[in-house]
Simulated assay, not measured.
Amino acid sequence: MKLSVFCGVSVDGFLARPDHSLDFLDTDDQEPHGFEEFYGSVDVIVIGRKTFEVVLTFGEWPYGSKPVVVLSSNPLNLSSIKDAVVEQISGEPSEIVTQLKARSFKHAYIDGGITIQRFLASGLINRMIVTRVPVLIGSGIPLFGPIPRDISLHHVATRTFKGGLVQTEYELNARATP
Protein backbone atom coordinates (compact mmCIF):
# COMPACT_ATOMS: atom_id res chain seq x y z
CA MET A 1 0.00 0.00 0.00
CA LYS A 2 1.26 3.46 -0.91
CA LEU A 3 0.82 6.43 1.45
CA SER A 4 1.22 9.93 0.06
CA VAL A 5 1.10 13.50 1.31
CA PHE A 6 0.08 16.38 -0.98
CA CYS A 7 -0.03 19.66 0.87
CA GLY A 8 0.42 23.39 0.68
CA VAL A 9 2.46 25.31 3.22
CA SER A 10 3.61 28.86 3.80
CA VAL A 11 7.27 29.44 3.00
CA ASP A 12 7.92 29.30 6.75
CA GLY A 13 6.48 25.78 6.86
CA PHE A 14 2.94 26.13 8.22
CA LEU A 15 -0.04 24.11 6.96
CA ALA A 16 -2.56 26.36 8.69
CA ARG A 17 -2.78 29.37 10.97
CA PRO A 18 -2.96 28.82 14.77
CA ASP A 19 -6.79 28.93 14.50
CA HIS A 20 -6.63 26.23 11.75
CA SER A 21 -7.66 28.65 9.00
CA LEU A 22 -6.26 28.05 5.53
CA ASP A 23 -6.96 31.44 3.94
CA PHE A 24 -3.32 32.03 2.96
CA LEU A 25 -3.43 28.90 0.76
CA ASP A 26 -6.32 30.23 -1.31
CA THR A 27 -4.56 31.92 -4.16
CA ASP A 28 -7.13 32.37 -6.91
CA ASP A 29 -4.57 33.46 -9.47
CA GLN A 30 -2.58 30.20 -9.29
CA GLU A 31 -2.49 27.82 -12.19
CA PRO A 32 -3.25 24.10 -11.68
CA HIS A 33 -0.40 22.39 -9.87
CA GLY A 34 -1.22 18.69 -10.03
CA PHE A 35 -3.67 18.17 -7.20
CA GLU A 36 -6.47 16.86 -9.44
CA GLU A 37 -4.16 14.25 -10.97
CA PHE A 38 -2.86 13.28 -7.54
CA TYR A 39 -6.37 13.05 -6.11
CA GLY A 40 -7.41 10.82 -9.00
CA SER A 41 -4.65 8.38 -8.05
CA VAL A 42 -5.79 7.78 -4.45
CA ASP A 43 -8.57 5.48 -3.33
CA VAL A 44 -8.90 6.53 0.34
CA ILE A 45 -8.30 9.71 2.33
CA VAL A 46 -7.00 9.57 5.91
CA ILE A 47 -7.41 12.75 7.96
CA GLY A 48 -7.22 13.71 11.60
CA ARG A 49 -10.11 14.96 13.70
CA LYS A 50 -9.02 18.60 13.64
CA THR A 51 -8.66 18.56 9.86
CA PHE A 52 -12.09 16.94 9.64
CA GLU A 53 -13.57 19.72 11.76
CA VAL A 54 -12.00 22.34 9.47
CA VAL A 55 -13.31 20.53 6.37
CA LEU A 56 -16.83 20.62 7.83
CA THR A 57 -16.67 24.45 7.76
CA PHE A 58 -16.15 24.46 3.97
CA GLY A 59 -19.89 24.09 3.37
CA GLU A 60 -19.54 21.57 0.54
CA TRP A 61 -17.98 18.17 1.19
CA PRO A 62 -14.72 18.32 -0.85
CA TYR A 63 -14.02 14.60 -1.14
CA GLY A 64 -17.01 13.53 -3.22
CA SER A 65 -17.70 9.82 -2.95
CA LYS A 66 -14.13 8.77 -2.08
CA PRO A 67 -13.91 6.94 1.25
CA VAL A 68 -12.66 9.16 4.06
CA VAL A 69 -11.24 7.78 7.29
CA VAL A 70 -11.20 10.22 10.22
CA LEU A 71 -8.72 9.39 12.95
CA SER A 72 -10.02 10.07 16.43
CA SER A 73 -10.21 8.22 19.71
CA ASN A 74 -13.21 10.35 20.71
CA PRO A 75 -16.67 9.79 19.22
CA LEU A 76 -17.49 11.95 16.19
CA ASN A 77 -20.85 13.08 14.89
CA LEU A 78 -20.86 12.11 11.23
CA SER A 79 -24.59 12.72 10.72
CA SER A 80 -24.13 16.07 8.96
CA ILE A 81 -22.30 14.45 6.06
CA LYS A 82 -24.69 13.33 3.37
CA ASP A 83 -23.89 11.27 0.28
CA ALA A 84 -20.34 10.53 1.43
CA VAL A 85 -18.44 7.54 2.74
CA VAL A 86 -16.95 8.62 6.06
CA GLU A 87 -15.92 6.50 9.00
CA GLN A 88 -13.97 6.95 12.19
CA ILE A 89 -11.14 4.72 13.31
CA SER A 90 -8.37 5.00 15.86
CA GLY A 91 -5.07 3.34 16.54
CA GLU A 92 -1.41 3.59 15.73
CA PRO A 93 -0.49 4.43 12.13
CA SER A 94 0.73 0.88 11.41
CA GLU A 95 -2.58 -0.55 12.70
CA ILE A 96 -4.55 1.86 10.53
CA VAL A 97 -2.53 0.88 7.45
CA THR A 98 -3.11 -2.80 8.23
CA GLN A 99 -6.87 -2.17 8.40
CA LEU A 100 -6.89 -0.22 5.13
CA LYS A 101 -4.76 -2.78 3.33
CA ALA A 102 -7.08 -5.58 4.51
CA ARG A 103 -9.87 -3.69 2.77
CA SER A 104 -7.89 -3.69 -0.51
CA PHE A 105 -7.07 0.01 -0.56
CA LYS A 106 -3.95 0.64 -2.64
CA HIS A 107 -3.13 4.36 -2.29
CA ALA A 108 -3.97 6.56 0.70
CA TYR A 109 -3.85 10.36 0.83
CA ILE A 110 -2.64 11.31 4.32
CA ASP A 111 -3.69 14.82 5.36
CA GLY A 112 -3.64 17.03 8.44
CA GLY A 113 -0.72 18.27 10.51
CA ILE A 114 -0.63 15.80 13.38
CA THR A 115 -1.71 12.93 11.14
CA ILE A 116 1.11 13.60 8.66
CA GLN A 117 3.59 13.91 11.53
CA ARG A 118 2.48 10.62 13.11
CA PHE A 119 2.68 8.69 9.83
CA LEU A 120 6.09 10.23 9.03
CA ALA A 121 7.44 9.37 12.49
CA SER A 122 6.20 5.80 11.98
CA GLY A 123 8.11 5.54 8.70
CA LEU A 124 5.00 4.88 6.63
CA ILE A 125 4.90 7.77 4.14
CA ASN A 126 6.17 6.80 0.68
CA ARG A 127 5.74 10.08 -1.21
CA MET A 128 5.44 13.76 -0.34
CA ILE A 129 4.48 16.62 -2.62
CA VAL A 130 4.86 19.91 -0.77
CA THR A 131 3.78 23.15 -2.44
CA ARG A 132 5.14 26.32 -0.89
CA VAL A 133 2.86 29.33 -1.20
CA PRO A 134 4.76 32.64 -1.41
CA VAL A 135 3.75 34.00 1.99
CA LEU A 136 5.19 34.05 5.51
CA ILE A 137 2.60 33.74 8.28
CA GLY A 138 4.90 33.60 11.31
CA SER A 139 3.09 30.95 13.34
CA GLY A 140 0.62 28.16 12.93
CA ILE A 141 0.38 24.41 12.54
CA PRO A 142 3.70 23.11 11.21
CA LEU A 143 4.03 20.46 8.55
CA PHE A 144 6.89 18.81 10.42
CA GLY A 145 7.29 17.95 14.08
CA PRO A 146 9.65 15.86 16.21
CA ILE A 147 10.81 12.61 14.62
CA PRO A 148 12.53 9.67 16.32
CA ARG A 149 15.28 9.41 13.68
CA ASP A 150 16.42 10.96 10.43
CA ILE A 151 14.08 10.37 7.50
CA SER A 152 15.85 10.09 4.16
CA LEU A 153 14.24 11.90 1.26
CA HIS A 154 14.92 11.30 -2.42
CA HIS A 155 14.30 14.42 -4.51
CA VAL A 156 12.10 13.60 -7.48
CA ALA A 157 11.32 17.03 -8.90
CA THR A 158 10.88 20.70 -8.15
CA ARG A 159 8.42 22.72 -10.19
CA THR A 160 7.77 26.44 -10.19
CA PHE A 161 4.56 28.12 -11.24
CA LYS A 162 3.88 31.60 -12.62
CA GLY A 163 1.96 32.67 -9.52
CA GLY A 164 4.97 31.96 -7.27
CA LEU A 165 4.20 28.46 -6.04
CA VAL A 166 7.21 26.19 -5.65
CA GLN A 167 6.41 22.49 -5.49
CA THR A 168 8.86 19.80 -4.45
CA GLU A 169 8.23 16.09 -4.71
CA TYR A 170 10.09 13.51 -2.64
CA GLU A 171 10.11 9.76 -2.34
CA LEU A 172 10.81 8.54 1.15
CA ASN A 173 12.76 5.52 2.17
CA ALA A 174 9.69 4.31 4.02
CA ARG A 175 9.76 0.87 5.52
CA ALA A 176 7.47 -1.68 3.97
CA THR A 177 3.92 -1.02 5.04
CA PRO A 178 2.12 -3.82 6.88
Score class of each variant (00 low, 15 high):
D26L: 14
A102T: 08
V11H: 06
G13H: 01
N74C: 05
G123Q: 10
S122T: 07
G40I: 06
Y39L: 07
P93E: 06
T168E: 09
R159N: 14
I129K: 03
T57H: 05
R127T: 14
G140F: 00
G40N: 10
I137E: 04
E31Y: 13
L120A: 05
M128G: 05
S80D: 13
Y170K: 03
M128R: 05
D29Y: 12
S65D: 13
R17T: 05
S104V: 08
C7V: 08
F24C: 03
E95T: 11
S104H: 15
F52K: 02
L78P: 06
E169K: 04
F161T: 08
V68I: 09
C7Q: 03
P142Q: 12
R118W: 00
R17A: 07
R118Q: 14
G140L: 00
G40T: 10
K101S: 15
A108I: 12
W61K: 00
D19V: 09
A176M: 10
K66R: 08
L76W: 09
G164N: 06
I114L: 08
A174K: 08
P146S: 13
G40P: 03
D26K: 13
G13C: 02
A174M: 05
I141G: 00
S94T: 13
V85K: 14
K82W: 14
N74V: 15
E171Q: 14
M1I: 10
D12L: 01
V5Y: 00
R103D: 05
E92C: 07
K50S: 07
V69K: 05
I47A: 04
S139E: 13
L78Q: 07
H107I: 06
P62E: 11
L100R: 11
V9S: 01
G140E: 00
L22R: 01
I129R: 05
R103N: 14
V11Y: 08
V130L: 00
W61E: 13
I116T: 06
R127K: 15
L143S: 04
A121T: 02
K2G: 11
H107D: 02
E95P: 09
I114M: 12
V11I: 11
D23S: 14
S72M: 11
P18F: 12
K82V: 08
R118G: 12
R49M: 02
S41C: 07
Q167I: 00
V11S: 13
R127H: 15
I129H: 02
K106R: 15
S4Y: 12
G34T: 07
D19K: 03
S65W: 12
A157D: 12
V69D: 03
D29T: 14
S73L: 12
S152K: 12
P75V: 07
T115K: 01
I147H: 01
N77F: 09
S90K: 10
L25A: 14
D150I: 11
V54W: 06
L78I: 08
S21P: 02
V44M: 11
N77W: 07
I81W: 10
